[in-house]
Design a protein around this nucleic acid. Structure first.
Lengths: 333, 333
DNA sequence: CTGTTAGCGCGTTCAC
DNA sequence: GTGAACGCGCTAACAG
């Protein structure tokens, strides 16, 4: 299989141009005789033809690929986003190249350099840092770049992210309808997205006149189950009992927090009100009242894609940022 | 940035060969004079150099990429496997190209054809079908191909999968230590992996002398929460109450089954013994006794990769299949 | 130690 | 209606 145009031309006796016309469906346009077309088509039906993308890319300076750099492929949110982006890409015959940085700035830089060297036609980055990025990207190529999920600011690239402030605000409001107070356990605290969630939390506390909303917030640098365990451990020690209501900055932190309650207290009281960022169908399994925030992956992917092809269609950049609303999900309440 | 070798050669006045030697770190070997090397290195430090993979691929007939076709990117198991494979690839400076088939044979074929056209150096397929695959792959290219996760048989490619029979056997044994009987709710029933799990289940039932182990098995074509709901619905109707112990062929089916108990009965009795294929940390959240089977993603990825590079290193294919053991995980018991 | 050259397969432009 | 030729940037082989 997988003959080249030149091989087909030699085998059938027609010129390369002629063969190319029938392959590209331009035989009508250039009035290729029906029999030559038939001959060529028959040959291809038997032996096959496979476009060589390397040669094509070399010539056209275009690879029909989009690069996507994510912190973690095993994170359900990024996996879903990758899936959504991939579908959009396929519609335009683009191949999505996804690479994980594993939250390592060095790997992130290498991934970006690699994708650029492979001539991606666009680049989507969910950055895990911002320090060394600008050098890499400055006056680089004419490749459209879109930042995603984390807004470290100052990088003047279009950025697409969820409305984390609104998410924090709405979730906290909903929880404070049920209980008079609420603790917030935060992993990956220095990340801009988390900062926004915290601001939403504080604003909702302020609305209810809850004094020093800030003292209800506990921070950890990592986003992990061990961070969750650690944060919950401190909270239980301070309160001398598990909290009546708490929310977490991510599913990982929630998992850790619940593990900690289980191991320290023995079981998880069904009356505890739980809140968490990022939704997961597994939350169905909890008997507790659960409030969660689901990011709109489809909308995010669409905005990212739109930003990517804006420059290709020669359009002006409108506003630099897209902020996508997220959705509150309630269980057992 | 991103000059070509030729540009650097022109700008510095040295020949392409000389420039290439210093770029490839062979200046020692070919005794490039220290000053010419310095000159070239300085130029590159300022203007940068970026390898053009398209040109390289065209010349070498090698793309330094591996293709990976999976049924569903949002499935945690495949996401983890992709992550593991990606790490192995990066060690060898290979880029992993992952494409989802969304369980659609047509998309699967297109994905494979696309990856082949892009000149992948190896192809890993977790097939969602087997009917049309052979035509696509027959006498294709010299690209090493490895099948993964689902063994539809008859395709004479090396195949890597978990020991589903052993998984089914061990999980069922463990459950039958706790309860006198156990129901098995199966989604995606025609899949070979599921068939193996069923065989393991039946074998364990036979060991205990449980009559007609087969009548405890309920099947659905789909692997989904709705399949789980449907299967549990039928089971509850037949028993007139929820089962004392049941296991599911996947997390999705489990979710559906639990949802159904919740909606039909009102709540999930904590004494129900639950078993499921595929593990998830979220299972920590259940108060019930839970037995699960975790596939060894790291080992699977390693075996897949080994199979992939076997032909490259000119080694013989040893046995055609790799069966990787999986691990039993128990919670609250 | 350094320079020259052919060609990988495709797309484009111009000639018959 | 069809053919020929050039060049994209890189690698490898050979020439000095």
């Amino acid at each position: 299989m997988s003959k080249t145009v030149e091989e087909i031309s030699r085998a059938t006796g027609f010129s390369i141009t002629t063969v190319r016309f029938v392959i590209n469906g331009q035989s009508e346009k250039f009035r290729i005789s029906a029999k030559t077309r038939k001959l060529i088509e028959d040959y291809i039906a038997i032996h096959g033809y496979s476009l060589n993308y390397a040669a094509r890319s070399l010539k056209l300076k275009r690879s029909d690929t989009i690069g996507f750099v994510v912190p973690d492929l095993a994170n359900a949110f990024f996996a879903r986003l990758m899936s959504a982006l991939e579908i959009l890409c396929r519609k335009r015959d683009l191949l999505l190249l996804t690479v994980a940085s594993h939250e390592d700035p060095e790997l992130e830089n290498r991934a970006i350099a690699n994708l650029l060297a492979r001539g991606v036609d666009g680049l989507v980055i969910a950055p895990c840092q911002t320090a060394t990025l600008p050098k890499l990207l400055e006056n680089k190529t004419r490749v459209p770049i879109v930042m995603f999920d984390r807004d470290y600011g100052s990088l003047h690239y279009p950025t697409v992210l969820s409305d984390n402030f609104q998410g924090g605000l709405e979730m906290t409001r909903r929880m404070l309808q049920q209980e008079i107070s609420c603790h917030f356990l935060c992993g990956h605290a220095e990340s801009p997205s988390i900062q926004d969630r915290i601001r939403g939390f504080s604003a909702a506390c302020a609305e209810k006149g809850i004094p020093e909303g800030g003292s209800l917030i506990r921070l950890d640098a990592e986003d992990s189950t061990s961070a969750g365990r650690h944060l919950m451990h401190g909270l239980i020690d301070d309160l001398q009992h598990p909290p009546r209501a708490f929310m977490c900055s991510s599913l990982l932190v929630l998992e850790g927090a619940l593990q900690q309650i289980k191991s320290q207290i023995g079981s998880i009281d069904k009356t505890i009100l739980i809140g968490t960022f990022d939704d997961h169908t597994m939350l169905d399994l909890l008997p507790n009242r659960v409030v969660s925030i689901r990011q709109d992956e489809a909308a995010l992917a669409e905005r990212v894609f739109a930003r990517l092809i804006e420059p290709m269609s020669g359009k002006k950049r409108s506003s630099p940022h897209d902020v996508v609303p997220c959705r509150l999900i309630c269980r057992n309440l």
